[in-house]
Structures are given as structure tokens and as C-alpha cells.
Amino acid sequence: MSNFLIECRGLYKTYGLRPALSGVDLAVGPGRIVGLLGPNGSGKTTLIKLLCGLLRPTAGWLAVDGEAIGPYTKSVVSYLPDRMYFADWMRATDLFDLFRDFYADFDYEKAFAMCRSLGVEPHDRLKTMSKGTKEKVQLVLVMARTAKLYLLDEPIAGVDPAARDFILRTILTNYNEEGTVLISTHLISDVEKVLDEAIFLKQGKIMLHQTVDAIRAKENKSVDALFREIFQAGPMFDEEEGF
């Protein structure tokens, strides 16, 4: 059995002729908070969708908790998409019922407690809720699980700085510490303080995968500063040799 929670080898994904991921090799262990960092169109969402089983790789090998993607891996992955997935007729409690039925690790009481602390009324119809409240419900569904892997796709995109802190605090106070959190974002400065590892993705390729401490020690700069250097000042190293 592998010690890694996420393993990818030679992972390719193309949409038609357009490559989204090109030969991604990746291994992430348990108990980590990992930033999946890259500009728009770098392949972050594609990688997350592959991990949660919404997409099939064009080529390569991919495993979560030592298993190929399937019902088992879906049962240990808690996924926050970058969009709403609610049906209009539902209330938050309907979703809680659904999650309790399908996920053994879903904590029903915790979901209600989180709703109370986030100021969400779970018996209200979702279609009457504001966008921000719906996002909170979606966050509650994800964080009320004791999952092995949390896949959070742009959880702080499109919200004001105060809301970003609020969301990050909710994630940090509720995640399973034995599990791994993979957060995709291009807002590096907001998440940097909570990250253990950073993965830089550019044009479907991994440019860098290191611990945040190693980056700071080696480069003598913050992850945000390094990110800006790599993605704004053009290539600073040969792609063949890696970082």
C-alpha cells in the first residue's frame, strides 16, 4: 500500500486537440494542506476533476488512497466545485439527508452547527438564498465530512477579502487533520499562510512542487512573490530541466 494519498504518473488530459494536462507526475501524502496554484487555464480545475472522477484521463495513471478512481475514492473525497450544483426544489436539509445517505463520514449534527455559526437557515429553500449563502451551504456540505481528501476548487474566488478570511477560517477549523486539503487558487497571498506545500501549474505541467518552508528557505521569498516571478516575468528556467 502506498504512503501517498494522491498519485499521478504521466497524466494527460486533452479536450479535443487542446491539451489541458501534459504529463503530470505528482505524489501528495496525507495530513497536508496543499495549494494548487496557477493562472487561469493552467489545468488546476482539470486536475481536480480528474481526482474526483468527473473526468477520465486521456492517458496516464491516477490513484487516490491507493485506489483507481471509482466509488471507493469518491467515498473518501470531499469536493467543492467552483459552481453551484443545487436543484431549485431543495432545501439545505434535503442535501444534508442526501449526504448522510451516501457518505458514512458526513456529520449531520456538525452540518447544523456549522449552519448556525455561519448564519444559514437550513430549512429555507435554496432558491430563496443569496449566492453567498448558497456558497456557505456548499462549504458546510464539504467540511462537515471527515474525508481523507478535500478538493476545493477556487473556494475564495469572486469574494471580498473579509469573506476570503472567513472561508479559510471555516476550512481550517473544520477539516479532518489526518486528511489532505488540496486548494486550487490564483489568489496566493490569501492562502499562503495556511499552506504546507505548493504546486505550481503552468500550461498543464507541474513547474514546482515543494513545501512552503523549502520555497522560503531556498528562494528567500514568499510563495506569492515566487509565483508572480514565474508567471509574470516569463520563463526563468528551462522546462526540460524543471525548476
Partner: peptide, 13 residues
């Protein structure tokens, strides 16, 4: 559609 994000991540075939 949008609901597919929920349904296809449930642990079912």
C-alpha cells in the same frame, strides 16, 4: 448539467 457535479461525485456507478 450543474447537478452533475453532485451526482457524479457520489460513490456510485
Amino acid at each position: 448539467g450543474g447537478e452533475g457535479y453532485l451526482m457524479h461525485t457520489l460513490p456510485v456507478r
